[in-house]
Simulated scan of single mutants.
Amino acid sequence: MSIDSWLSSRLDKAKGAGVYRTLRTMNGPPIPEGTMNGKNQTVWSSNNYLGLANHNRLISAAQAALQQFGAGSSGSRLTTGNSIWHEKLEKKIAGFKRTETALLFSSGYLANVGVLSSLPEKGDVILSDQLNHASIIDGCRLSKADTYIYRHIDMADLEEKLRETQRYQRRFIVTDGVFSMDGTIAPLHQIIALAKRYHAYVIVDDAHATGVLGESGGGTSDHFGVCPDIVIGTLSKAAGVEGGFAAGSAVIIDFLLNHARTFIFQTAIPPASCAAAHEALDIIEASKDKRELLFSYIQIIKTNLKHMGYTVKGHHTPIIPVVIGDTRKTATFAEKLQGKGIYAPAIRPPTVAPGESRIRLTVTAGHSIRDIDHLLEAFRSIGKELNIIP
Rank of each mutant, 00 (worst) to 15 (best):
I3V: 12
I3W: 05
W6I: 14
S8L: 10
K13N: 13
A14G: 05
K15P: 14
G16K: 15
R21Y: 13
R24E: 14
T25G: 01
M26C: 10
P29D: 09
G34V: 05
T42N: 06
V43A: 05
W44A: 10
W44Q: 01
Y49I: 01
G51F: 05
H55Y: 08
R57C: 03
S60Q: 11
A62D: 08
L66N: 11
F69N: 09
F69K: 04
A71W: 03
A71K: 15
G72H: 12
S73R: 14
S73P: 05
R77D: 07
L78C: 07
G81T: 10
W85M: 14
K88R: 15
K88F: 03
K92W: 02
K92T: 04
F96L: 00
R98W: 08
E100H: 11
L103R: 10
S107I: 08
V115D: 07
S117D: 00
L119T: 08
P120T: 11
G123A: 13
V125I: 13
N132Y: 01
H133Q: 09
R141K: 14
S143E: 02
D146V: 03
D154V: 09
M155L: 15
M155E: 15
A156V: 14
L158M: 09
E159A: 12
L162I: 06
T165W: 03
Y168S: 12
R170A: 12
R170G: 12
R171D: 07
F172G: 03
G177L: 03
M181H: 10
G183A: 09
T184H: 08
T184Y: 07
I185Q: 00
L188W: 02
I191W: 03
L194K: 11
K196I: 02
K196S: 05
K196A: 05
R197G: 06
R197F: 01
H199D: 14
V202Q: 00
D206E: 00
H208Y: 03
A209V: 01
L213D: 03
E215W: 07
G217D: 00
G217A: 05
G218S: 04
G219M: 08
H223W: 06
F224R: 02
G225T: 10
C227H: 11
D229M: 03
I230V: 14
T234R: 01
A238V: 07
G240R: 01
V241T: 15
G243Q: 11
G243F: 02
A246G: 12
S249E: 14
D254T: 15
F255R: 14
N258A: 15
H259A: 12
H278E: 14
E279D: 03
L281T: 06
L281G: 01
D282I: 06
S287W: 07
F295S: 14
Y297D: 02
K306Y: 07
G314Q: 05
T317N: 09
P318W: 05
G325M: 09
D326Y: 10
K329F: 00
A331C: 15
E335V: 01
E335P: 00
I342S: 01
Y343R: 03
A346Y: 00
P349D: 10
E356W: 07
S357A: 11
I359D: 08
R360H: 04
A365I: 04
A365N: 08
R370C: 04
A378F: 11
F379E: 08
R380S: 11
G383A: 07
I388L: 15
I389L: 07
